[in-house]
């Protein structure tokens, strides 16, 4: 029994201590998170849905690229991306572009890049964002092609 006690007790700290440690490490990140949230608020005011909609040209290939870029620049709740996406479809913008737009809205974020670099490092952030950018366009094209194939 003594052996068992010795085995268990020394490694596991009290839960409150662990909670305090997690809270402190989160608190250390507060300026980083507040900075990102501040930027998101600013972008929501300065980059309006109307401005985003006006970027699209009507060329499927170019619009897919524009969709990915504008989705990455935009910030806010994904619901807004659906609203703008629906509006874009009504205006005759291709589904390739709209799919890329709503996807990059949630997977890419220029605003949070400084925070991502700070937490995960420059190399990881660069690789992840390049992969995400390429795959966003690939997924948008594949989804639309599959949809066209099915209908």
């Amino acid at each position: 029994m003594e052996k068992k006690q010795r085995k268990q007790s020394p490694q596991r700290p009290a839960f409150l201590k662990v909670l305090q440690k997690s809270g402190l490490s989160f608190l250390a990140m507060a300026p980083l998170l507040l900075g990102v949230i501040g930027l998101v608020g600013l972008f929501q005011v300065l980059v309006t849905p109307k401005m985003l909609t006006s970027l699209f040209q009507g060329n499927s290939l170019l619009d897919t690229l524009i969709g990915t870029m504008s989705g990455a620049i935009a910030a806010g709740n994904p619901i807004v991306s659906y609203l703008i996406g629906g509006e874009l479809l009504e205006q005759g913008i291709s589904l390739y572009a709209v799919s890329a737009f709503i996807l990059s809205w949630v997977t890419l974020g220029f605003i949070q890049l400084p925070a991502e670099v700070e937490v995960f490092g420059g190399r990881f952030t660069l690789y992840r964002n390049i992969l995400s950018f390429v795959f966003t366009m690939l997924i948008a094209v594949l989804t639309t092609l599959s949809l066209q194939g099915l209908s």
Binding site: L24, A28, P31, L32, L34, G35, G38, L39, L42, L46
Partner: peptide
């Protein structure tokens, strides 16, 4: 313990000030 992202927050505050 050390705060992270101080410069980011400072940059954002300056940006708010300019705007």
């Amino acid at each position: 313990f050390a705060f992270r992202g101080k410069y980011l927050l400072l940059t954002v505050l300056i940006l708010y000030g300019v705007i």
